[in-house]
Design a protein around this nucleic acid. Structure first.
Lengths: 95, 95, 95, 95
DNA sequence: TCGCCTGATAGTTGCC
DNA sequence: GGCAACTATCAGGCGA
């Protein structure tokens, strides 16, 4: 294997190309999102407001995640290591 | 269908949720990219250099795209509306 | 000196106004640029092509900068901390 | 003079380079602004809040400009073509 | 002239 | 904690 200063060129190339493929996928999805907004706009929706809605919903989810995290902390503090389904159960009750 | 102020809630919800699903996919891919960098780092590669390599490769691609675009612009400016294969031909000569 | 909550109003005002003056200068230059484009357009030049030319020239400069940077990174990675004139020498050979 | 398809290369080059010089100036000013923020930060100011202050002041100016514009419109509508100092006088009274 | 759309800019998040 | 990449917002330019 070709190496320069102890660096494997082939191995490096693998990593570089994996990142490039993933970034291509990410760019494609970004395009898809743009298309959804365009379609919504064509249907008379205000994209700026849609973005605000998305932001608020995201914050809600984050808040919920933080609450779940706090719940887990409490359970640990109480010596009650939560099984996943316990947390699920607790969450469903909390809703 | 339920509407508020002439806005279809159901229709809007469709768009919002489509965007949310796509953004979730995008976030997952961003995570994958982070993991690839972490793995490369664990294999002794310098992520700073990797990022630089990626940046240069990206700029190369962009520059090629830009130059193809300006070629098309020139052809239009000269009244030579390019058929696709004409552009392909010109590009291959330019290389 | 007047302070509110330990914040010096006068001192803050100095900074704010310096930024505002600079932003005014920046806006003026943006206007100058617009005027140059308008003048070029009045002389029959296609501004779209001009912008494309500018973009490519900018990318050329950036790419050169990026490549110099990665050369420096590589030299460091190889334990060859570059003196400035060494880099200059290497770059001139690379050209 | 060299021309391609009726396009003067030399003339175009003049415009391109004028724009590039102006953009360089603009970039320099942007750097200056960044330095002012850095200096303010080093003096204990919160740059995020500073930016908000700047935004609010900018909106105030815009609001004032709009009011001046409306005043001018009214004066015209009344057959009173405003001399500049008249407007200045009216504005100072309005404050 | 108005609306769209792309490019510039400001803000946020993640990395070092 | 500072810095850089990325994202979202905004304004100017273009075409209908």
């Amino acid at each position: 294997m070709t190496t320069f200063g102890g660096v494997s060129g082939a191995h490096l190339k693998q990593f570089i190309e994996r990142v490039e493929r993933l970034e291509e996928d990410k760019a494609n999805i970004a395009n898809d999102i743009r298309e959804v907004f365009a379609e919504a706009k064509a249907n008379g929706f205000d994209t700026k407001i849609m973005r605000q809605v998305l932001k608020i919903r995201k914050m809600d989810h984050q808040e919920r995640s933080e609450q779940e995290e706090i719940l887990t902390l409490y359970l640990h503090a109480l010596g009650m290591v939560p099984r996943d389904d316990t947390v699920e159960e607790a969450k469903s009750k909390a809703i």
